[in-house]
């Protein structure tokens, strides 16, 4: 059953009304502010700030900035300016709870639970639903059918497939030109007794080496592109979110597609020359 539970008040809107530099008030509660909020409001660790539940300063409270943090990057909100602060739950409740509602001081938006054994989740869900009807008990992980990134993944895959198809057509055209260039040399090699099979193996090996070198160069370009894209977008949206990541699995998949394609394109283009008769190859 549960190993740990934490209470959260979700996100509430509070207003930062002002700040003062390093006041000597030791009893003030601590607050953490995001790097973006600190930069916008020119806040520093140790500063005393005033938060209120509305812009008119209703139920204002003073806090001391205990730290500045980088908010966890959220791909769903990467364009939003992260003007956020984190304070202890009793402080949030004191700041935002409706004083006319006696239950407000006891209310939270969510309770996060971690299980000792994740397999207990379903039993716990049904047990809690039975004990507290009307309570929503949902897993924090997003179901695949509700995950927009699963759809984006498929979109990127579709674009990769189209790019590979286009690249393959060009590769074939180039290999055909190369094979045509070497027609007479192949004719001469056939004349001195080198078999079609040996020539085909040579072509396959050549295609393999070219494809491997091409794939390595491609990965190097992708790594350089990764840095550039991340740098541009992280600066543009003031976020620590990683937009592009060339993982070993992505690199391996690229090699796994590029190498067989390169070999196949080389073989297909060369076969049109290799299958011809020797006399035709040397124009006799």
């Amino acid at each position: 059953m549960p190993s740990r539970a934490s209470l959260t008040s979700g996100a509430v809107v509070v207003f930062l009304l002002g700040s003062a530099l390093r006041a000597d008030e030791p009893q003030l509660p601590d607050v953490l502010v995001t790097r973006q909020l600190a930069a916008r409001a020119e806040l520093h660790v140790g500063d005393v700030v005033t938060f209120a539940s509305d812009a008119n300063g209703t139920r204002a409270a003073r806090f001391r900035i205990a730290g500045i943090y980088e908010p966890t990057p959220d791909p769903m909100r990467f364009t939003a300016a992260r003007m956020e602060a984190r304070m202890h739950l009793p402080d949030v409740i004191a700041l935002t709870a409706d004083p006319r509602d006696p239950a407000a001081a006891e209310a939270v938006d969510a309770i996060n639970i971690r299980f000792v054994d994740p397999a207990d989740r379903a039993a716990f869900q049904s047990d809690l639903r039975a004990r507290a009807p009307g309570l929503a008990v949902t897993p924090t992980a997003r179901a695949p059918e509700h995950d927009p990134f699963a759809v984006l993944d498929r979109f990127h895959l579709a674009i990769s497939v189209v790019t590979v198809l286009g690249g393959t057509a060009f590769l074939l055209a180039l290999m055909i030109i190369r094979a045509e260039e070497r027609r007479e040399m192949i004719g001469l090699l056939r004349l001195i007794g080198i078999s079609r099979r040996s020539l085909l193996v040579a072509v396959l090996l050549e295609g393999f080496f070219i494809a491997v070198i091409g794939a390595i160069v491609g990965i190097a370009i992708a790594l350089a592109g990764e840095r550039m894209v991340n740098m541009i977008f992280q600066r543009r949206y003031d976020t620590a979110l990683v937009f592009v990541r060339v993982t070993p699995s992505v690199a391996l998949r690229s090699v796994a597609v590029a190498v067989p394609l390169g070999i196949a394109a080389g073989a297909a283009a060369s076969w049109s020359v290799l299958r011809r008769g020797i006399l035709s190859l040397i124009h006799r």
Partner: peptide, 19 residues
């Protein structure tokens, strides 16, 4: 004259152009 390579080049441009 170089029909095959021309057709392949057009196909390549068509696919990349479609994207």
């Amino acid at each position: 004259c170089y029909r095959m390579r021309s057709l392949l080049a057009m196909a390549g441009v068509a696919i990349i152009g479609a994207l």
